[in-house]
């Protein structure tokens, strides 16, 4: 092991302890797993099981795209429901933007 590596790396003893404990923890049933870890999948929505992103088809569409030349949209979705929908740094001026649009 080189000197420069020793100075920036964790000791072999500390690593050995951490890895061996981790190995036994990982083998334990999930209920006994570290509960401070927040792990999210999409299991809440069954139909999203195979949420795979876009796929090709060989079909056309009957939906219509209404392309306007002037931009007239404002974000109007769940962003308005968060605990602090506006930014403390002044980005999130939804109301101001709405006023400007007309």
């Amino acid at each position: 092991m080189s000197k420069s590596l020793t100075s920036t790396a964790l000791s072999a003893t500390a690593l050995s302890l951490a890895l061996s404990t981790a190995l036994s923890l990982a083998a334990a049933p999930a209920s006994a797993a570290d509960h401070q870890e927040k792990c999210y999948g999409v299991a809440m929505k069954g139909k999203n099981d195979c949420a795979a992103g876009p796929g090709t088809t060989c079909a056309g569409t009957s939906k219509t795209d209404h392309q306007g030349s002037a931009w007239k949209y404002v974000p109007k979705g769940s962003c308005e429901k968060t605990a602090s929908p506006t930014s403390p740094t002044g980005f999130g001026q939804l109301a101001a933007f709405k006023e400007k649009k007309t």
Partner: peptide
């Protein structure tokens, strides 16, 4: 089913 500029039927292959 859609219509062309003259009102004739214009069918769209949507597989939908």
């Amino acid at each position: 089913e859609d219509r062309d500029a003259a009102g004739a039927p214009l069918l769209i292959d949507t597989h939908g």
